[in-house]
């Protein structure tokens, strides 16, 4: 139910209301947090920023949960990339050693292969994700949104007993 709530809210903001850059920024933040292990200092900071700025929170949490599953699936890739970055590239070992000795650095868990690997992947993909989502929302609102809304499939889904049941539950929770 918790996750459906975010999907529902996310679909709503896709249709209208929030500006695309704020939705895209929220989505990107959620994407970074979702792809990486949650309990790190950098994720706490990102979530803090998300709460304090006007980025769309529904998109933050939607992306966080959605990419949390993706993270689970591609975990071995993170481990290999993280291990390579931390242990096999000799030239940057002095940098890691220095960071390892900084105060607070241990709370970032940067020396963990999965944290490092996932953070690198998230960092590299963050910019294209931001611009991609922003462009996607504009395109969606201009073209696909209404078409999808009026499509037979969506109408069929909306007419289904499951959807009605969902709306009933949703309204119960939200009102």
């Amino acid at each position: 139910m918790f996750f459906l709530k975010f999907i529902s809210k996310f679909i709503k903001v896709l249709h209208a209301g929030e500006s695309p850059p704020l939705i895209a920024a929220g989505f990107t933040m959620g994407f970074v947090v979702g792809l990486t292990p949650l309990l790190t200092l950098q994720n706490v900071l990102i979530l803090l920023i998300a709460f304090l700025t006007k980025v769309n929170l529904a998109s933050v949490f939607f992306a966080m949960f959605a990419f949390g599953f993706v993270a689970y699936l591609i975990d071995p890739l993170y481990h290999s990339l993280g291990y390579y970055t931390l242990a096999e590239i000799q030239n940057i070992k002095p940098l890691w050693t220095a960071v390892y000795n900084w105060p607070v650095a241990p709370y970032t868990r940067f020396n963990n292969t999965v944290v490092m690997g996932s953070f690198l992947v998230a960092l590299v993909l963050a910019v294209p994700v931001y611009f991609g989502v922003r462009k996607g929302i504009v395109a969606y609102r201009a073209t696909f949104g209404k078409r999808i809304e009026n499509s037979k499939i969506v109408k069929a889904i909306k007419g289904s007993s499951l959807y009605k049941w969902y709306v009933r539950i949703r309204d119960l929770e939200w009102n």
């Binding site: 292990p37 975990d75 071995p76 242990a87 020396n111 292969t113 999965v114």
Partner: peptide, 22 residues
């Protein structure tokens, strides 16, 4: 010992140790 663990538990990873100055 920083030898690569081939299959650490999912989402746990492996902690790599570096020299500590203090």
């Amino acid at each position: 010992a920083n030898g690569k663990q081939e299959k650490p538990p999912r989402l746990k990873g492996q902690d790599i140790r570096f020299p500590i100055f203090n």
